[in-house]
Design a protein around this nucleic acid. Structure first.
Lengths: 215, 215
DNA sequence: GGCGAACCGTACCGTACGGTACGCACTTTT
DNA sequence: AAAAGTGCGTACCGTACGGTACGGTTCGCC
């Protein structure tokens, strides 16, 4: 390796360059439109770059997909709240926020398209896109929600033994059949108002199951 | 059409012949193994039939997939219980049965493979495999559970306004993150004992939310 | 101004796969 | 026994797509 490189142009992706980000956004656009089978040609054409550059930057088709998933994931993890003192009202608010933002994610066309691709390739082994999507989706939100649940327990607002199990229940109450229906192509419109009310309903149910009257 | 036909050899599938069923079982096997990309050649070779026959029977690749999904669906709808008089114990038992059998379905390798295929093609429009899978999965079980819930309400054991909404909560409590994790390739072993305890837990939670003390 | 790197556009190659054609064997009908 | 039908095996065709090669252009650097 010559010492000329100012940024890694090799496949190991440590923050893509702006130009590369533009390419990845093109990939996301094509995924969402979904009309064509997401071919390397289509990406190159739409991104106004040559296929050779694509292969130089991302190695192969799989590398491009992985980079795209990571890129999308990097812009989702937005706020990270420190949980301080909790009362029942703020706990409810925080959980509602999590529920609503999670619903917004899984209902977004981007998420649906991305998950479809990852699921399809999870069937044919090779680069585990599925693992990456899981790590940045289901498990990432789990790691963010569980501290909140534990803080709620510490404050005497919640009662459970296993925060993982409690979170999984929360996850089920929020998502229900929405994700699988969208993945399978069901129409199921979910607007902002619907998301808010769904989130509120899920949180009330969760609190009914795990909440505990102030001791 | 000549009056020779003893069974429909055309694409409209009204119960496939035994030979055709064998072919569809081969397709299911190949889906489950998942090592090869499910090519028509592979099906023909494994089923010891010619591709020409495949095309004559099923029209095209899509028709073969649709027939396979229907075939699999036809063997899943097993018992259909008539709901008579309900007490709390039998309601709990019936719901546990539904939950456990649903978990067994979504955790089966066949279901995972089938859903992956359906989801992949839901991305590229054309023959809505996704719709068929939904109709025979999520919606079929909904139509079977809702009468039970309504009978429970009639018996004064459950309280809800909308049986569809109640069922969706039930669905979420049972499935939680299991299906999406399996679809995305997560290991997540779920044995018979785990299914039973998961089902029992989900039912208790559901009853905690919707149950009502005998009036 | 000259040199090299990066990169676009396009042409090209190999292969995998959906779909078709055809020859042969076996069974059923007349 | 001949004729017709059904279906297996194999060869074949067209095309789409992943991946590579190459000429031409722009841009930064000495």
């Amino acid at each position: 390796m010559q010492p000329t490189a100012t940024q890694a142009t090799e496949h190991p992706q440590l923050t893509p360059s702006p130009r590369q980000q533009a390419v990845l956004d093109v990939v996301l656009s094509l995924m969402v439109e979904g009309d064509d089978p997401l071919t390397m040609d289509a990406v190159a054409r739409r991104a106004s770059c040559s296929k050779e550059t694509l292969y130089k930057w991302f190695g192969d088709r799989d590398g491009l997909l992985v980079a795209t998933v990571r890129w999308q994931a990097s812009r989702v993890h937005a706020g990270r709240e420190a949980v301080g003192a909790l009362d029942a009202g703020t706990l409810r608010d925080i959980l509602r926020d999590f529920a609503a933002s999670w619903l917004a994610v899984i209902a977004s066309r981007t998420s649906v398209a991305l998950n479809r691709i990852a699921i399809a390739d999870a069937g044919s082994r090779k680069s585990n896109l599925g693992g990456i999507v899981l790590a940045n989706g289901r498990f990432a939100i789990g790691e963010r929600v569980k501290p909140v649940l534990e803080a709620g327990r510490a404050a005497g607002l919640l009662a459970f033994d296993d925060s993982e199990a409690a979170f999984r229940t929360f996850f089920g109450l929020v998502g229900r059949d929405i994700q699988i229906r969208l993945l399978l192509g069901d129409a199921l419109a979910l607007d902002a108002a619907g998301i808010q009310s769904d989130a509120a309903r899920a949180v009330e149910q969760f609190l009914a199951l795990y909440g505990q009257a102030k001791p």
